[in-house]
Write a protein that binds this DNA or RNA. Structure first.
Lengths: 172, 172
DNA sequence: TAAAACTTTCAATAAATTTTGAAAGTTCAG
DNA sequence: CTGAACTTTCAAAATTTATTGAAAGTTTTA
């Protein structure tokens, strides 16, 4: 496989993969392109490489910046903005966990608290099942909240080292 | 908040939440409904409660069964099929991790291997960046593969116990 | 200040996904 | 068997989401 073929395949596959993760295809493709690009690219280069419009490129690059996966690079003496992706995959993963937690779990936790305070007779089977289910989900979410916070703070070495050893040890 | 209000809110919120996870709104709503339902429900009851068509109910219930989150309940002497959701949230989470791993990571790993074998001169900066990025993603994926396998096998007690203690200890 | 170089916005359009519902398929009691 | 009770399928329609591109906005240079 030549580099050109491999690049095209990686961009296509990363794009398809991204759609499973609440990230749209184009956003994931731009991310893929920047990940394998040795130098920062301009919006025009991204448009050209992926055959997408200016507006589309602009919006999705902005969203990648919001997610903390891409940053602007200003070159002295150039008007144009360039963009570059974080190449350290552990940092990328941690950043994604962090953002998704913020956008999903952190919003869900207060809702679950509210739902757990439903009024009604506990002897009513429907009430009982409802509150039990919500409380189980709450316990799970609170645990996930703590675990993810710690994971977000963890450095790569620790994550690769201790956690894996722990899992490996427990497997037997 | 009355039970009826709380049920409606939970179903709506769980549905919205699900769309972030590659699960469609209706599938997540049916799951929510069955989670809080004390008894198994028939397809007609699901249709009625969520105001959806027979075809829609049938397809999404089938998909929930594929995901291992819902199972059929046959009642002696009744033609109709009933459906019931796994209520243990830890089992639900493990099942989701297992299925997503199968549908995503397990498909990606061989693709990455293929991409890492790109031909070209390693002194070429474009080739170098490409192979380095792919190899970093491979390392990450291989690690995730092992970690997730162990997590899938882990029982709730262990997960709640040791892992959390470990994370808590490392936080300082 | 003017205008060139560039970025952002957003209404219209296109594409992708989901839903419907009627027809076809299946199962089972009589 | 036969038909009633139920489930499944799938093409067409509705809905949701993504994309375009031209106009508006911004910044810089001269």
């Amino acid at each position: 496989m030549t580099l050109a073929e491999a690049k095209a395949k990686f961009i296509a596959d990363w794009g398809r993969f991204g759609t499973n993760w609440g990230i749209n295809r184009t956003m994931a493709q731009i991310h893929a392109l920047l990940l394998i690009s040795p130098d920062p690219l301009s919006a025009d280069e991204v448009m050209e490489e992926l055959s997408i419009s200016r507006g589309n490129a602009n919006m999705n690059i902005r969203e990648l910046i919001d997610w903390g996966l891409v940053h602007k690079v200003i070159r002295p003496g150039e008007r144009k903005e360039f963009f570059s992706a974080e190449k350290d995959i552990w940092k990328v993963a941690r950043q994604i966990v962090k953002e998704r937690k913020k956008r999903e779990l952190d919003l869900m936790i207060p809702v679950l608290k509210e739902l757990s305070e439903v009024e009604g007779d506990k002897r009513d089977k429907a009430v009982k099942t409802f509150t039990e289910t919500i409380n189980n989900i709450r316990k799970f979410s609170d645990q996930a909240d703590k675990t993810l916070d710690t994971m977000i703070r963890a450095d790569e070495h620790w994550f690769l080292g201790s956690l894996v050893k722990l899992f490996a040890g427990k497997r037997d």
